[in-house]
Amino acid sequence: MTNNIIEIKDLHFSYNSEDKKPSEVLKGINLDIKEGEFVAILGHNGSGKSTLAKHINAILLPASGKVFVNGIDTSDENRLFELRQCAGMVFQNPDNQIVSSIVEEDVAFALENLGVPYEEMRKRVDDALKAVNMYDYRLHSPAQLSGGQKQRVAIAGIIAMRPKCIILDEPTAMLDPQGRREVMGVIRKMNREQGVTIVLITHYMDEAAQCGRVVVMDKGKVILDNTPRAVFSHVAEMKKIGLDVPQVTELAWELKKAGIDISTEIITEQECVDMLVKLLNK
């Protein structure tokens, strides 16, 4: 037995379209994610990262290969709700995932569906709202909230199910910088304090840099899988598939190209500053 919460084995998937030949989106993905990990999945548009995410939650089922979440085969229909309770999913547009016109009732939606009794539900809803710092807004209408607040409500709706793992599909793409900070703060807190496994799909490099592990996808394949530091040092490779690296990493890379002796394994501004100071003092 392993402590892998997500196991993806040789996953293939293609979308069927009427006019064209089916196009293969995922071409043999192998990926294991351990319990409590904080993983970012990076990739260009059309790299298959969202499709991969939808497999973890059994919204899509593999054409071939297997996906296991907490030991549950995603193609096992009998355990579908158990699976979805275990692996919650948050989407890009907060407006399109909020069901109710009252914040606390939306957070309760999943629990209502699962038939959780009232006392238990009340407690879990309040806990979830407190975890995302939205308790004071519990009786508001979502229409009165900002984008970041709405996304936090959507996250609370998932947290209320007490999942072991949360998959977030570009949760900050539609938010302003303030909203992004709030949402990232909540996600990191969930991972650190509750040990919830996080799979964060993003195209913001600075968000990926905050994760413990970065998986880079291109054209339906995993091409890099390592710590952020190691992944972002592959500057040329990242650029080739149309991805950026954090600005500081790029600066170091350019300096190195210009013949200056500097490590490209830096991802934070502070590291960059230290490195440059050291270099100038030489």
């Binding site: 995932q97 069901v99 569906n113």
Partner: peptide
């Protein structure tokens, strides 16, 4: 929106009215 909302509802185990409890 309808499409996305339907997916989000499924992700939260929506299965019609049977066996639902209410907040």
């Amino acid at each position: 929106r309808a499409d996305e909302l339907a997916t989000a509802m499924e992700c939260r185990c929506y299965n019609g009215g049977e066996g639902r409890t209410r907040l």
